[in-house]
Design a protein around this nucleic acid. Structure first.
Lengths: 323, 323
DNA sequence: CTGAAAGCGCTAACAA
DNA sequence: TTGTTAGCGCTTTCAG
């Protein structure tokens, strides 16, 4: 495989001159320039990106740590990240963690190894010290509220959203309000916020109203069964995700309860699902979060930017497939 | 930042010896070994990944070219790719093309630049010569049926699926069968196959039965309006994607036609959407395709592997939210 | 078991 | 406007 030396030799110039035309520097004679270009074409030469990365100490690559990729929330986020990264001529290394701490911290060392210029952190299991220890090797931006003060972040105002939803349901006069979450409150800060918001707006006791381990449609069906099998059923539910909400709606139906006649339900992520079934959903604007997170990561500024959510109500009569 | 030289000096050995313990080679005296490890810890040293890549000529990274990431089909595929790549200790560079040829071919040059070890190609606009020209610089595996004979591929048997769906609808006695696709037949091979399958099973003429530019829920609503606004409406529809199907169902409802009473509809990708609304959907097993594509990419074998689809019927009475 | 030395392919300061 | 040269940080013969 041809290298810069071969090009230089064949063009009858020094490698410096070749490097110059490669990088578009001025002060290269027209004829040499053309000769070099011709040789490059003839040899079908390309620079070795790793040599460039080594000497420049810069990779033009960022890493994105996500628990999973097949989840509408990360999907939107990644979408924004890819868009902005492409705009700024950066490449994106997609790093799935499966919520495993060992894997997550191995990704952080990519920074030390100089293989990426920065890291975007989403939902994770890392301890503050782990993040802090490695933030000295490169910039880290968090796409959730980050407990580490020194790390920049672009994040949704989840707590405000939770308060808004619960307050809305309370004001509507609902009496038996249930809610769901993904990971348990031990591991998930947002689950803790959910519970706290419930306690601040509805009631102190949440046992029997709260169901965790909800991630997808099947989980929704599972907890729907728990909610609707008894004689006392919820009249409003706030779920962590539209898929879970859809599962609950399906399960409720099997127990003889129909949405929207028999209960209210509010989802999250604002996917087509909520539009189709006609239930409200909280939009955290993940695409915007992704874009801004990349911008922040590639700037040398420090910031903690909160992105405002939107509780999205549907024109139920029109769009919904449910009557 | 510390380098291998610093470690060697502080440990009182040569860099060769340091390199040896770094890479777990035998024949290093126990005491030197321990001393080196201690120094590495003390200096908080890590190897420079770019130097390693440069000298080894191998990156342990693969690139995945996708048109978009926020589409359930690529989502599943990427999921399989990430899983298998992680298993084989490879990293994944996610390369969005937005169906732009210039972008796509710029990604192929990453191979020449030695920045990735191989490329996974999904839906694209590349010409055979473009692929061929770069396949000499590294292995390329296609996740769709690939026109270039020399390129390995792992792909769904789309045509067989189309034939199966149309035959099924025909045998059920449906008379006015419509179908949709994404990109127009000029740019999309699968659109051409769809039309061909329709012609072979239903009828030669497809004008008025065929609607392209369908990518998401909104497009589904749009073409649903076209289909159901006239007095002659379809009694069966085969859509390219569950979201499109859902949009059509929603639009049909607004025109006074209900699923499943008034028409049959079959989607693609087998997402929760089809389960929720209870319509059949073709599962191309994209996760499996992704996993196998990675395995093939990282092997040095040549193969063209076809993955069998599955037309997935739903237990409509139970799971569906529609009566 | 260990180390010297020759690169991997490139950039950039410096000198001309 | 051009070339010489000294690295970037590491692996890997090869000779002890």
């Amino acid at each position: 495989m041809a290298n810069i030396k071969d090009v230089a030799r064949m063009a009858g110039v020094s490698i410096t001159t070749v490097s110059r035309v490669l990088n578009g520097y001025p002060y290269v004679a027209k004829d040499k320039q053309e000769k070099i270009m011709a040789v490059i074409k003839e040899l079908n030469y390309s620079v070795n990106g790793n040599a460039v990365k080594l000497i420049k100490g810069k990779t033009n690559t960022i890493g994105v740590i996500v628990p999973y990729n097949n989840n509408s929330c990360y999907d939107e986020l990644i979408n924004g990240i890819l868009k902005k990264a492409h705009e700024l001529h950066y490449q994106v290394l997609l790093l799935p963690s499966y919520y495993e701490n060992v894997i997550e911290s191995s990704y952080l060392t990519l920074l030390k190894k100089k293989m990426i210029d920065g890291i975007l952190l989403t939902s994770h299991t890392l301890h503050p010290e782990q993040i802090l220890a490695l933030s000295e090797w490169g910039k880290i931006v968090c796409c959730e509220a980050c407990p580490v003060e020194l790390v920049s972040s672009v994040f949704p105002d989840r707590f405000a959203a939770y308060i808004e939803v619960f307050t809305y349901l309370k004001n509507k006069g609902y009496k038996r309000i249930h809610f769901t979450s993904g990971r348990d409150f031990q591991s998930s800060p947002s689950t803790r916020l959910r519970i706290q918001a419930y306690q601040e707006t509805i009631a102190e006791a949440y046992e029997g109203q709260f169901f965790d381990q909800c991630f997808d449609y099947q989980d929704g069906k599972r907890v729907g069964d728990l909610m609707f099998r008894d004689s006392i059923v919820p009249d409003a539910i706030f779920t962590n995700g539209d898929e879970v909400a859809a599962g609950i709606i399906a399960s409720a139906k099997m127990h003889g309860y129909n949405y929207p006649q028999d209960f209210e339900i509010i989802g999250e992520e604002n996917t087509p699902l909520s539009e189709i079934l006609g239930f409200p959903s909280v939009d955290y604007h993940q695409t915007a979060i992704g874009e801004q997170a990349v911008s922040l990561l590639l700037s040398d500024e420090y910031a903690r930017i909160q992105i405002r959510h939107k509780l999205n109500f549907r024109a139920r009569t029109e769009a919904s497939v449910l009557s």
